[in-house]
Structure formats: structure tokens, C-alpha cells
């Protein structure tokens, strides 16, 4: 039997033909990175390869790394493997990685979202024989409303708070989710303030040419009274903290796919929960898988077993990526979905 194109090792997804890893979670010599989130782009690798659009954020997070960049769709030869990166629609620069060896094509999805958000490069299905798919929201109870619908809900909440003299504090992961929200809301409603962690990413992405509305970073000197009716975008950890108390009377909200569940919504004890996710919903996952034309599916990141069982019943050759490999920090961190749900 010939070597599979990609295999699952205790360091991560490995390509023997090219001697490289995809999103490895222990230090390796050569790492191909789908996107800059902490559970995909880890420190300590000797060499990094990513899209040029994903690299600035990675450098911002990981510091001085030895890196190379490719454009979306550009093919690279590594050993006996041909490698290319294709938009995953998860956040700016995020990619699926296509690996071809001897005419057989495998794709590792990284994290992806199928609905175009008008901000990051939209998801593109990549035909392949085997597809390694995330399934953070791989249950039929997770279906998202159209972005426009949720944007209207957020705008209405903000406008109503502004009209009644309350600040609107919106919690969202500072890399990706926060910027997508900034892009989708109606910036004409009032001033927008940002937490330092969010603003740091804004600076990086603006420099790359991504279009974001004007924002003002909250500093010790800033007087919130100068910004009545403001929307404040901050990482979830800042909500309900001393940092947030400076804005006086306020309404707090959290944006995440997990807000679909009443129990999670209540656990966060926010005034509002908006269902906004940078991951594919149930229907999105199924459509994406179908469009790849792949017969072999590997599930990782999320409800892997349930999802694989369902796919098997649908006639796919579906396997769960071994658990000791699938580190699931995003899903299991102390704040469910706080990172990039």
C-alpha cells in the first residue's frame, strides 16, 4: 500500500512526500499554517509557510519568525508534493491547504465559513479526493441566520442603547470576529471605541488594505463622556470587568455561534447574545463537503464523532481524526466559544 498523502501524527497533520506539517501543535522543521489563530499558528517552528494575507497577523502574534508567503491559488512544489492555499472565508488571509501527490489530492480545511461576509476572501470549494474538515458546529441545531439579519439586530440594539443614554459593549474575539463585526455594522449610528487588543489587530489589517470603519482606542486618558452613544468592541474577558465599568450605564452583548444555545447565552449573563460565527454552520459544512466531491472525509475540531457517524450514514468514508492529535482549545477553553466561535 502506498503512503497516504497526509497522515495524522502526534505533532499534527503530516505530509511524508513533502516532509512538512499543517498547523502542527509541537515544534517542527517546516509548518504550513492555515491562519493566525492560536490553535493553528503556534510558536517554535523552524520555518513557516502561509498566505501573504495571513502573515502580518502571525508575525504580530508570534514575533520574529522565519517565514515565507504565497498568494491564494499559487502552486508550490515541496519535495514530491504540490501545495496551494485557497480561501477559507474564516478571517482575512485564512486558507484551506491543498496537497497533491502523484495525482491524489487532499485538502485540510483549517477553520472555514461558507457564507461570504464581504470582508475576508470568500470560501472556495476545492475539488479533492480526501477532505479534512473542521466541525466546531457540526450538529443540526447550529444554523446561522443571514449576516444581514444579525447585523440589523446589532444595529437596532446599539441605536436603542444610544437613544437611552447607554453605552453598548460588544464582546468578540479580538482577532477576526471583532473586525468582521466592525465591518458589518452601521458605523453611522455613533462613535466606535475599541479595546487595545482589538485595535492592535485593526492596525495590522488596515495596513494590509482591509476596509474598517474609524475607531478610537480606549486609553487611560480617554473620557468616555466625550463619546456618548458609543459602541465599544472588546475581547470577552474585558466584559464585566473593571475596564468596562468606566463607560457608566451600559448594555453588554456577546457575539458567537454558541449564542445559538439558550443555556450558553444565560451562562454568560450578558444582556444580549448575537449569533455570529466565523465557522460554518451545519448546512454550510454539508454543502462544503459535497462541493469538494471527496469520498473520504476526516473530521476534526468539534463534534467529530457525531459528525463522522452522520457522514458515514450518508455514504461517505468518514473517520474521526485521532483525539490525541485533535487539540481542541478553541472548543474547550474556559470560555466556550470565547475565542473564535
Amino acid at each position: 500500500m502506498t503512503e497516504p498523502v497526509l497522515s495524522f501524527t502526534d505533532r499534527g497533520i503530516y505530509c511524508a512526500a513533502g516532509d512538512f506539517y499543517i498547523d502542527p501543535w509541537r515544534p517542527v522543521d517546516r509548518a504550513l499554517i492555515t491562519h493566525g489563530h492560536a490553535d493553528h499558528a503556534r510558536p517554535g517552528h523552524a520555518r513557516y509557510l502561509s498566505t501573504s494575507a495571513a502573515l502580518p497577523v502571525m508575525k504580530h502574534r508570534l514575533g520574529d519568525i522565519r517565514s515565507e508567503a504565497v498568494e491564494f491559488g499559487e502552486t508550490r512544489r515541496i519535495g514530491d508534493a504540490s501545495v496551494s492555499f485557497h480561501p477559507a472565508g474564516h478571517l482575512p488571509g485564512s486558507a484551506q491547504i491543498r496537497v497533491e501527490v502523484g495525482g491524489e489530492v487532499w485538502v485540510a480545511s483549517g477553520d472555514y465559513k461558507t457564507e461570504p461576509d464581504g470582508f475576508c476572501e470568500p470560501f472556495e470549494p476545492v475539488p479533492c479526493h480526501a477532505f479534512i474538515t473542521e466541525c466546531t458546529f457540526g450538529l443540526p441545531v447550529f444554523n446561522w441566520a443571514a449576516q444581514k439579519t444579525v447585523a440589523n439586530e446589532i444595529n437596532a440594539w446599539w441605536a436603542q442603547n444610544a437613544a437611552s443614554g447607554r453605552a453598548s459593549i460588544l464582546g468578540a474575539y479580538s482577532l477576526g470576529k471583532a473586525q468582521r463585526l466592525l465591518h458589518m455594522i452601521d458605523s453611522g449610528i455613533g462613535p466606535i471605541l475599541t479595546h487595545g487588543a482589538v485595535e492592535a489587530t485593526n492596525v495590522v489589517l488596515r495596513a494590509q488594505g482591509y476596509n474598517l470603519p474609524e475607531t478610537v482606542q480606549v486609553t487611560a486618558e480617554l473620557d468616555p463622556k466625550d463619546y456618548p452613544g458609543a459602541l465599544i468592541v472588546a475581547p470577552p474577558s474585558a466584559l464585566g470587568s473593571k475596564w468596562a465599568s468606566r463607560f457608566g450605564p451600559s448594555s453588554s452583548a456577546f457575539a458567537s455561534g454558541w449564542m445559538r444555545l439558550r443555556g450558553v447565552r444565560r451562562r454568560r449573563a450578558m444582556d444580549r447574545g448575537f449569533v455570529v460565527s466565523d465557522h460554518a454552520d451545519w448546512r454550510g459544512l454539508l454543502t462544503a463537503i459535497k462541493e469538494t466531491g471527496a469520498d473520504r472525509i476526516f473530521t476534526t475540531h468539534g463534534y467529530t464523532e457525531i459528525f463522522a457517524r452522520y457522514l458515514s450514514e450518508k455514504g461517505y468514508d468518514a473517520t474521526v481524526v485521532p483525539t490525541e492529535f485533535g487539540s481542541m482549545e478553541e472548543e474547550t477553553g474556559e470560555e466556550p466559544g470565547a475565542q473564535n466561535g
Binding site: 443540526p140 444555545l261 443555556g263
Partner: peptide, 17 residues
């Protein structure tokens, strides 16, 4: 919903209700 019953059953403990 067009899903097998076991999938609904497996989703239930995660939703909680």
C-alpha cells in the same frame, strides 16, 4: 428536520433542553 433520530438524541444533551 430530515435527520436521523439518533442525531437529534445526541444533540439533546448538548443543548440541554
Amino acid at each position: 428536520a430530515g435527520v436521523p433520530l439518533w442525531l437529534l438524541e445526541d444533540s439533546y444533551p448538548i443543548v440541554g433542553d
